[in-house]
Design a protein around this nucleic acid. Structure first.
Lengths: 157, 157
DNA sequence: TGCTATGTTCAGAAAGTTTTGAACTTTGGG
DNA sequence: CCCAAAGTTCAAAACTTTCTGAACATAGCA
């Protein structure tokens, strides 16, 4: 019980060290380990000692990342439940790679758009690498999903 | 000239949006596009309008990530030069994946160490996924290096 | 060795982010 | 339709991080 809460705190610390809000990490840690897996906002407030506002904001983020889904709760309102493959989805952040790809292309354009120019080499290698990674990540995830027997978690957004 | 400086600023903004210091991003952007590729601290201070301290700190970080190397400069001191595959190296952040792997294992331990327990499922899938990714990333990088004709950028740290 | 260019450190200022909680809105039961 | 529970928003406070620049250290030339 207390160990589980401590685990949530620890995930909070780790994610915080990666530049994410601690509240976000605590919620994630708790939802990974809590019993039952469905938790209402009120329960999360209680369990983690966070303000209602922080839970609201944090859960919205987790939802938008596709890590958590709402489920009907008895009475009114809803509960949240983390998906089994929640963290798998986060690696599928193709957007990140595509942003870098775009910036590198812009750099090449600044240099006159000549890809073969020696000065453009670093930019070109970087651009191509991120394109390569963005292309490969979905394959990697599929491969894992298959060997693990998960249904494909392909995200379309 | 002015476009190039603007490019550096833009990389600063993008990386800043990813939780990294803006000065770090500006240095990276400038080193990706500058001519000549070798730049002294004084030149970086001048080009980017950063304080000496910020350049010093930022360059130390870029060096430790293996993105930049010191090269002898005429006169005293040294210059920095970004490696062509600098950003390729940053994806090879296996440490990140292994940290998450370790946290998930800890969570399973909190639950009594029984991997087959239903409650441990989310933790187990996550742990295994990060192990999988940590294992595959080097392969992915090698594959890219080969198709691009780069010498292997394997980092041992 | 003295002198200057170069580089680093670090304390405080500036900037930015997260958290909180009170006010507000929404929802659903009776 | 009213009321209470549930959820959201947002401004201000608390906190954290980055940036700056002056003081300090180091290295090489003469």
């Amino acid at each position: 019980m207390e160990d589980e809460r401590r685990f949530a705190e620890e995930v909070g610390t780790v994610l915080s060290g990666m530049g994410l809000p601690a509240a976000f990490g605590k919620l994630m840690g708790w939802l990974l380990i809590c019993d039952p897996p469905q938790q209402t906002s009120a329960q999360l407030v209680q369990a983690l000692g966070l303000a209602k506002g922080s839970v609201s904001t944090g859960m919205r983020a987790l939802e938008q990342l596709g890590m958590v889904q709402r489920v009907p709760a008895s009475g009114r309102g809803h509960a949240y439940e983390m998906l089994p493959d929640a963290l798998v989805r986060t690696v599928d952040a193709r957007r990140l790679y595509l942003v870098i790809h775009a910036v590198m292309q812009k750099g090449i354009d600044v240099l006159g758009g000549d890809e073969s120019a020696p000065r453009a080499q670093r930019l070109r290698v970087t651009r191509d690498f991120y394109a390569f990674v963005a292309e490969r990540i979905p394959q990697l995830i599929d491969e894992f999903a298959q060997q693990e027997g998960l249904s494909q978690p392909r995200k379309d957004a």
